[in-house]
């Protein structure tokens, strides 16, 4: 993950204009996000291995999503509130 991108991401979501962020903090957030993605990827890859499928599909990803929630990465509340009301086109 690029540091610049993360900085923009964080600054985009700051509600107070006065708030700023130090360069070191941005670096740490970048690392946290990297670990988050790697963790999710590894878990879903493992799940695919267990299901003996060579491709990680949505099914496997859905299975490991609650694990990410339980580790405090995501909250259930937030996801359900901001869920798209549009119907899915499969």
């Amino acid at each position: 993950m690029k540091v610049e991108t993360v900085k923009k991401l964080v600054q985009e979501n700051l509600k107070d204009d006065k708030s700023k962020i130090t360069a070191d903090a941005v670096l740490l957030i970048t690392e946290v996000l990297n670990v988050f993605v790697a963790e999710a990827a590894c878990r879903s890859a493992k799940q695919a291995d267990r299901d003996s499928s060579p491709v990680v599909t949505r099914e496997q990803f859905e299975k490991i999503l609650p694990q990410l929630v339980s580790f405090g990465f995501l909250t259930v509340n937030d996801a359900s509130q901001e869920m798209d009301p549009k119907p899915r086109h499969n």
Binding site: E12, A45, P54, V56, F61
Partner: peptide, 28 residues
């Protein structure tokens, strides 16, 4: 791990990452 990722998974994960970063910045 010798597997490939479906495109759906990658977009879902990137959406999750985006939400996570939003949540994180609010908390911070």
């Amino acid at each position: 791990c010798d597997v490939t990722f479906a495109k759906q998974v990658i977009s879902a994960l990137s959406e999750a990452t985006f939400r996570y970063s939003q949540m994180m910045s609010r908390d911070l």
